[in-house]
Computed example of a mutant assay.
Amino acid sequence: MPKQLHILALDTCTETCSVALTINGDVYARIEDAPREHSQRLLPMVDAVLAEAKVTLADIDLIAYGRGPGSFTGIRICTSMTQGLALGLDLPVIGISTLTAMAQMAIELGASQVLCCIDARMKEVYWGQYIAKDGIATLVGEEHVSAPEAIELTLDTQQTISVCGTGFEAYPQLLNIAPHITPCSQATYPDAKAMIVLAQQGYQQGLHTSVDELSPVYLRDTVTWKKLPGRE
């Protein structure tokens, strides 16, 4: 592996569809607000960043994929596309939490504590708490799915907490969860660009896997992921 990993990052877990590619330290990216069109948009966006960087999939060292939580359909699209791209070249893959990617975006904008909250429908939210460690979003505790009123903050409520995600639009009362709340609208949806640094760190920590071990995270346990036929 080269010192600077060539990483392709994909995310379709929410309303936005995003792709990012890092080649020799340069980043090429696309993002589109395209609900219900992710399956049509993702591969052309991948082709576009590869063409812009003047590389092919064979030049990629690692594929980072949005593993959820988020839309069940969006997670399935992202994991299926990752399988298809990684399989032929036997590329390693690494799953990046949707919530962590959003927190990373907020931290890159100056946040030190972040509460991410995605509307999960059914009167629930997906949520996670993060602190910045050396500029990297670090999960405090676990990711959760719960009713909005069941969120229990363990962050320092005497300090500013940045909040992001569609959960705060669906349940605006959450903006009163602590006395020093700062909304971060730029991180309402995850962007694959923020996944690059998380993938680099995860790779260094040995968190990457083969494509056969690709693992989406729904948080709700009512959905079962099925691998490609013959690869169970």
Rank of each mutant, 00 (worst) to 15 (best):
D61L: 01
S39V: 11
T22I: 15
S39W: 07
I181W: 02
A34C: 04
S112I: 07
L219H: 01
A192K: 08
E143I: 04
Q113Y: 03
T12D: 04
C184S: 08
L109E: 15
P229A: 10
S97G: 10
D134W: 02
I131P: 00
D119M: 05
L115S: 10
P172Y: 05
H180Y: 06
S80A: 15
T82A: 01
Y189R: 01
K227L: 14
R76C: 15
P190G: 04
P229F: 04
A137R: 07
Q83Y: 10
S80L: 08
H180F: 10
V93C: 01
V163F: 03
G206C: 02
F72T: 02
E37C: 10
V46K: 02
A58T: 14
P216R: 12
I118F: 13
D90V: 00
L43C: 06
Q129T: 03
T138F: 04
G95M: 01
M45I: 01
K226S: 05
A111R: 02
L5S: 01
R41E: 15
I31Q: 13
T22G: 05
A199E: 12
S185K: 11
A147E: 15
I161K: 11
G135S: 04
V163Y: 12
Q83K: 11
S146A: 04
Q113T: 00
I131H: 02
A20M: 14
A64Q: 03
R30L: 12
I196Y: 03
S185F: 08
A51N: 08
V114E: 02
L153F: 09
G230E: 03
F72G: 05
D90E: 15
L87E: 02
I161Y: 03
S210F: 01
P35K: 00
K3I: 13
A178R: 09
V163I: 08
V27P: 02
V145L: 06
F168E: 01
S162N: 12
I118Y: 13
T224V: 13
R30P: 12
L87D: 00
T100C: 00
S71M: 13
V49S: 02
C184Q: 09
I107V: 06
Y203G: 14
I181Y: 06
L153R: 01
P92A: 01
L89R: 11
M45T: 11
Q158K: 15
E152D: 12
R36Y: 14
N176T: 04
L87C: 13
M105W: 08
P92F: 08
C164L: 06
F72V: 12
A147Q: 15
Q83D: 00
V46W: 06
A150I: 02
